[in-house]
Design a protein around this nucleic acid. Sequence first.
DNA 1: ACGCTTTACTGAAACGCCGCAGCAGTGGTC
DNA 2: GACCACTGCTGCGGCGTTTCAGTAAAGCGT
Lengths: 347, 347
Amino acid sequence: MGRRDRPTGRRATIADIARDAGVSASTVSNVLNGRSNMMTEETLLRVQRVMADLDYRPSSVAASLATRRTASIGVILSEIETPLFLQALQAVETTARQAGYNILLCNARNIDDEHAAVNVLLDKEVDGILLFSTSVLLESDYLADLSPWAPPLVLINRAVLHTRFDQINWDSTDAMIEAIAYLAGLGHRHLAHLTGQAHRRSTLERLEGYRVGLERHGLPYRPEAISSGDPLERHEWERNILELLALNPRPTAILAAGDTCAAVTIRTLHRVGLRVPQDISVIGVDDQPMSVYLSPSLSTIRLPVVQAGKLGVEMLLERMARRRDSVQQLNLPCELVVRESIGPVSS
Amino acid sequence: MGRRDRPTGRRATIADIARDAGVSASTVSNVLNGRSNMMTEETLLRVQRVMADLDYRPSSVAASLATRRTASIGVILSEIETPLFLQALQAVETTARQAGYNILLCNARNIDDEHAAVNVLLDKEVDGILLFSTSVLLESDYLADLSPWAPPLVLINRAVLHTRFDQINWDSTDAMIEAIAYLAGLGHRHLAHLTGQAHRRSTLERLEGYRVGLERHGLPYRPEAISSGDPLERHEWERNILELLALNPRPTAILAAGDTCAAVTIRTLHRVGLRVPQDISVIGVDDQPMSVYLSPSLSTIRLPVVQAGKLGVEMLLERMARRRDSVQQLNLPCELVVRESIGPVSS
DNA sequence: ACGCTTTACTGAAACGCCGCAGCAGTGGTC
DNA sequence: GACCACTGCTGCGGCGTTTCAGTAAAGCGT
């Protein structure tokens, strides 16, 4: 019945268990680590009984010191703001936990935060690091001279290419081209593009996709149909959208830099009395959780962040288990998701 | 110049620094812990120099073993799915980091996961635990017999009340009443309610707020205007909404259980040719990041999750610093955010 | 009864850091 | 010149595990 309370306020240690069970600490340790074939069943049961009685919980920090592994992996979210990444993070946690690892989470607002986070994680002796970035363009990178005894590191969506590190990236250029092909197939000839922030690689990718897509389908490329106000303020977005609508001929489709931007676009179009998609088609990038519930539901280019998180952890696990030595760099496709906000051009 | 490489593959330890700097390990430890007043400046500089040369990084796991604190707090997200919580999580991380703590993140899909997560965090000897739940109603709770030597624990939005633990909760009843007052002020008399999942306290709160609100403003309470299909499937939602629209008299406002549900409502209304808010007003609960960008922008009851996260960490810090012994239970208000999706009833 | 293997367990040395008691040396006080 | 306080440092005993060499006893074949 009832657990026996230890007189001392401390939490029980292996030594306590050993004493009460009349065995050595080593034996208790063997029980803890599942080496039950190294003792009689009687001993095993006795030790387990005492553990339960004393409400014993092994200290993983002591174990970590002894084994030099912490069973935890560091995850850095660097300049991440889209709520989309909660799903990615949860996928990461689940995958890691199934392999017996915990997540040490760091959030970074800029490259210095990120560097600091890496150092913290090194101090904490995590067994691996997963670095989730937005694709901010950098000229140099502290990662280049990371300690040789740093744990495995997997970079996700990082603009800088390092030959040393495993990486997972996605390239939205192709999906952008695909989107344009789809729109061209519906009869659209005048496509406008609302770009993202200038210092991101993703912005360049989309511009490139836009250019190539138009060219490939013989559609007119007009610089004035590209609105790049590096828009952070919402009313600035709206102004940019209105400017695009003033073009002659007026665009029949707008490719926005993100789902939020696309939502603002739809709002603005509604406000000035234009219907989506009957008058103008709209497409975003991200596939945020709520995008499917917009009215009209938003067509978008889905970023593979969840998959990247899962794969990233798996790459890390491979490395940590020394099942692989070669650098692996993966490129994930972005998927065009066609929903209601795209329609044929009305002639 | 350039750092001197150690011949061994190991990472440098205090002993290495001590040897190379010609001092004892204690002195190095003093340097590490900022007790620079205990040595001459010359010694300090010499030690720091050697540290830099050897690219020394102190092992926080060894320090944790010695000091019995890990400088990390465990955060459990229990049954959290709304992307809203990424912001809360980031707020938590930032607040904790500013106080010198790291986040050990666990994700739980159900109460057993949650229990397991608590145990893992106890094993990892975190200095405190922040438990973020959705308000699932429980009959019993493993927390009741948590080890006496468990670290401080702060519960956020947990349906079960424990007198032992610090807690932060929010009650949407009042905001619901406020929303109804607002709608009544605009001339609405027939309000429908789409409820959330039956096993959540929040669902009960909103039902209560709905009931009290109607009563207080002399509005008719009709059970058939409450649609509680425990709706997880989207097409089920749509069917429920259509059923509400078939009521006679038809509701002029719909209070949805969440922003996603509200977005579906708006979609459905648009689909059948009803305008929001001219024909029907819609209001959600959550204030998800994208809600403001819906068209019309969504009125909603904002849940104080970010604030709760920040306050939760602060409560934890107080406890960990033993600056407070008394149990603190906070109730945060939910704010009614009026945006475009609410309008006067058209007569 | 003799070696040999196997089984079941023990003892002690790590792992890298902290913290405290202690110890020389110096300078000041009466 | 005995006493004390202060400064700047050292030595050592933990912290709670793991791990490995070692050992005593039992089993086994001959």
